[in-house]
Computed example of a mutant assay.
Amino acid sequence: MIKLAIVLPCYNEEEVLRESARRLAGLLGQMEADGRISPDSFMLFVNDGSRDATWDIIAALHAADKRVRGLNLARNVGHQAAIMAGMMTAKDWADAVITIDADLQDDLKAIPKMVDEFARGYDIVYGVKVQRTADPLLKRLSAVAFYKLQARMGVESVYNHADFRLMSRRALQMLSGYKETNLYLRGLIPLIGLDSTTVPDVISERCAGHSKYTLAKMLSLALDGITSFSVKPIYCILWLGLAFILVSLGIAVYVVHAIMAGTAVPGWSSLILSVWFVGGVVLLSVGVVGAYIGKIYKEVKRRPLYNIKEVLGGE
């Protein structure tokens, strides 16, 4: 039978942890009774530098149920790095690892389907959102816009998939070979190339608490997703520069004609407008190039993504 690990990144999730552990324990028990997974399957809660009682609750849950394991990171490293820490730790303990957020808004009914697809030979199974009515309207619209922008930028990813997925130990071993500091798992995992499939994921309301994924964090993730896997923004700057050269040639022709015809009138407004517009485009272009240089700066330092402070279970 399959030994399954369920990895849950946690940041200030004290309000939902007990309920999440209860529901997952019931699910593990049901799948064990159905013969899908082995009795030593477990859930691994990754504490991403929480400021509340998240780690204390994880420790208490572990003491009450050995199927609950804990990974305490030394500091807050972000959602993507916390998921990576959990997967890289759990890959040595299990045949397959499922990642899911601790709020359990993703569909738990999809987990047995993922396990079944893994048993059929798929190394990667993506949970794809088919219904997001529980999400705020702004989040739904921005997510759709982002997925479409990714596709236009040439980023290979699974449409409407976040970080709810199953990966085999073989896939995780291959993923461990990618030593990127600017981590964007949704674009990185499809590059592995192993056989994959999808299962439907119906999003539900949080049982308690509120989302820790702020607009700023979502925008930062979107920027990482594009700049880590596409150089099209750089080429957009190139084409924009060529367009400005053509416009300037047209203006030069107009100015020469106006001088020869004696209709040239000195204009302060048009000059200032042009200066501000071109200056804004130049600054924007420098900013895009700077973002890429900044990512190179981070990559060449080769700093570790995370440091593990404490582990509960898996001895």
Score class of each variant (00 low, 15 high):
Ala143Tyr: 02
Ala143Asn: 06
Ser142Gln: 07
Ala151Asn: 12
Val128Lys: 15
Ala151Cys: 09
Phe164Pro: 00
Phe164Thr: 01
Ala151Gln: 15
Arg152Glu: 12
Phe146Val: 04
Asp135Tyr: 09
Gln150Thr: 07
Leu149Trp: 07
Val158Lys: 01
Ser142Lys: 06
His161Phe: 13
Val144Thr: 15
His161Leu: 04
Ala145Glu: 11
Pro136Val: 04
Ser168Lys: 02
Val158Phe: 03
Ser157Trp: 04
Gly154Lys: 03
Phe164Met: 04
Ser142His: 05
Val130Pro: 03
Arg152Met: 13
Phe146Ser: 08
Ser157Met: 09
Gln150Gly: 10
Gln150Asn: 11
Asn160Met: 15
Val128Ala: 11
Ala143Thr: 13
Arg152Thr: 10
Pro136Cys: 04
Leu166Pro: 00
Leu137Ser: 10
Gln150Val: 05
His161Asn: 07
His161Thr: 04
Ala145Trp: 08
Leu166Asp: 00
Tyr147Ala: 05
His161Lys: 05
Ser142Val: 06
Val155Trp: 01
His161Val: 08
Leu149Cys: 08
Ser157Gln: 12
Met153Glu: 08
Asn160Val: 07
Leu166Phe: 04
Ala151Pro: 05
Met153Thr: 06
Asn160Glu: 11
Lys129Ser: 11
Leu137Met: 11
Leu137Thr: 11
Ser168Val: 01
Tyr159Asn: 10
Met167Ile: 04
Val144Asp: 12
Leu138His: 13
Val155Gln: 02
Asp163Pro: 09
Glu156Asn: 10
Asp135Glu: 14
Lys129Arg: 15
Gln150Arg: 15
Arg132Asp: 14
Ala151Trp: 11
Leu138Tyr: 10
Val128Thr: 11
Asn160Ile: 06
His161Ser: 08
Leu137Trp: 08
Leu149Pro: 02
Leu149Ala: 14
Val144Met: 12
Val158Glu: 03
Met153Ala: 12
Arg132His: 09
His161Cys: 10
Met153Leu: 13
Asp163Leu: 12
Ser142Asn: 09
Gln150Ser: 09
Ala134Met: 05
Tyr147Val: 02
Tyr159Met: 14
Tyr159Val: 11
Ala134His: 05
Pro136Phe: 02
Arg140Trp: 00
Ala145Arg: 09
Lys148Thr: 10
Gln150Tyr: 13
Met167Ala: 01
Val144Gly: 08
Asn160Trp: 07
Lys129Asp: 13
Pro136Asn: 06
Gly154His: 03
Arg132Ala: 13
Val144His: 12
Leu141Cys: 07
Arg132Ser: 15
Ala162Lys: 12
Glu156Thr: 14
Thr133Gln: 15
Leu138Thr: 14
Arg165Phe: 07
Phe164Asp: 00
Ala143Asp: 07
Met153Gly: 08
Val128Asn: 05
Glu156Gly: 05
Lys148Gly: 09
Tyr147Thr: 02
Ala162Tyr: 11
Arg140Leu: 01
His161Pro: 05
Phe146Pro: 00
Asp135Gly: 02
Phe146Lys: 03
Val155Tyr: 01
Ser157Val: 10
Ser157Pro: 04
